[in-house]
């Protein structure tokens, strides 16, 4: 599926799935999921990631490492939609008898790692990329980080390693939604100049609009053809909670589900499509 309109439609479907499962559970990181919804859609449906839903440990797969494990509702929606896990699991999100909950669990098919403690995914992605490179395997590794996560020291230990080792089979995506759990990043614990930092650590940096699937495809769609020795970092400007006006860009909506009485309203807004 590479048609931009189709991908946009798929992103809206996934977001609706996220709202339904989290509202039913009364919890879950909806806004964190929405900031990276188009990025994730492009990766999984835009012929970027290689995977086999019926064989999640397929040797030829690319590895997707969700370092910002809080955004797992959107990943679970994708894994269910693609058939890695049963769709019924979404109805049981955070419910007794269910397998999936608020943070990512490593033993769910397609999840690759347990995630929720920030600052860990990039180093793991680096280890996988290093192993693949040593064995001359063509697989790629994609790692999604949050921008507020970039305050974790371990991120930079790993970034320094990746840049120095020139792990150009690893693509680091930073979901730059400008919000932490409770604060606007640049108001209280800023990370600018973020492009310069990644460049200084030895990365090629592409800065894009993370809700524009066309831009995403342009930035990531060709990774297998890139000749640069440097690893690639995508800084994707996004809006936390994008597409639903009453949860968008509000600090204390972090980890909060849409209330049942407003669920239909949220789904209606999602259906109209989000601003770019």
């Amino acid at each position: 599926m590479k048609d931009i309109k189709e991908l946009e439609k798929k992103a809206r479907e996934l977001k609706e799935m996220v709202v339904r499962m989290t509202t039913k559970a009364g919890t879950g990181h909806v806004t964190s999921s929405f900031s990276c919804a188009e990025l994730m859609t492009a990766l999984y449906y835009g012929d970027i990631l290689r995977y086999r839903p019926d064989d999640c440990k397929w040797e030829g797969r690319d590895y997707f490492i969700l370092s910002k494990g809080h955004a797992n509702p959107i990943l679970y929606a994708i894994l269910a939609d693609l058939g890695f896990i049963d769709k019924k699991e979404l109805d049981l999100f955070c419910q007794p008898g269910g397998k999936i909950g608020v943070l990512l669990r490593g033993d769910i098919p397609g999840a690759e790692i347990t995630s929720g403690s920030l600052g860990c995914g990039l180093g793991i992605a680096a280890g996988i990329a290093q192993a693949l490179k040593s064995d001359r395997k063509p697989n790629y590794v994609f790692c999604m980080l949050g921008d507020a996560e970039c305050r974790e020291g371990a991120v930079w230990e790993s970034a320094m390693y990746i840049g120095y080792a020139q792990l150009n089979n690893l693509v680091t995506i930073i979901d730059r939604n400008y919000l932490g759990a409770t604060h606007f990043v640049e108001e209280e614990a800023g990370i600018e100049p973020i492009d310069d930092k990644w460049e200084a650590f030895g990365f090629d940096v592409r800065h894009i609009n993370g809700h524009d699937i066309g831009e995403i495809m342009e930035a990531v769609g060709d990774v297998r053809c890139i000749k640069s020795k440097k690893p690639l970092a995508i800084i994707a400007d996004t809006v936390k909670g994008n597409g639903v006006s009453f949860i968008e860009n509000i600090p204390f909506m972090h980890g909060v589900a849409v209330k049942p009485e407003r669920m239909e309203e949220a789904i209606e807004e999602i259906g109209k499509g989000s601003k770019l």
Binding site: G123, G127, I128, A129, Q130, A131, S158, M160, Y161
Partner: peptide, 28 residues
């Protein structure tokens, strides 16, 4: 040389890197 990595003074990264290596089938 292909089986030896010096991460420098970065123990968190060393353990994460080892984790990734193990996930990709190595014995770090």
């Amino acid at each position: 040389p292909n089986q030896y990595i010096n991460t420098g003074i970065s123990e968190q990264n060393a353990v994460l890197l080892a984790t990734g290596l193990a996930l990709a089938g190595k014995k770090p």
